[in-house]
């Protein structure tokens, strides 16, 4: 069981994490914004996460922490 934690305060909604994820765990929110007005990345299929950390490697803002 692996888990990711997304820091929504830092997220800029660029979607590079969602693009890198091989298991479609992450998707950009269609409704929820952070204080900067970005549609944040959120977990949609957390049970599929394998802890590969591809999302964290591609995140330009170090907003993702990965546990395994």
């Amino acid at each position: 069981m692996a888990n990711i934690t997304i820091d929504e305060k830092v997220c800029k909604g660029c979607g590079l994490c969602a693009n890198a994820c091989p298991k479609n765990v992450i998707s950009l929110s269609k409704h929820r914004m952070n204080a900067n007005g970005y549609f944040v990345a959120e977990k949609v299929n957390p049970q599929n996460c394998i802890g590969c950390a591809f999302c964290a490697i591609m995140c330009p803002d170090c907003a993702i922490e990965v546990e395994k």
Binding site: M1, A2, N3, K9, V10, K12, G13, C14, G15, L16, Y38, G51, A53, A56, I57, P60, D61, C62, I64, E65, V66, E67, K68
Partner: peptide
């Protein structure tokens, strides 16, 4: 669960000003 990826201590907690998606 052990942390496999976490932010390095060599970077400060200041939010970067770069545009979204800039690498």
């Amino acid at each position: 669960m052990a942390k496999v990826f976490t932010k390095t201590k060599m970077l400060t907690d200041v939010h970067m000003h770069y545009c979204p998606g800039c690498t």
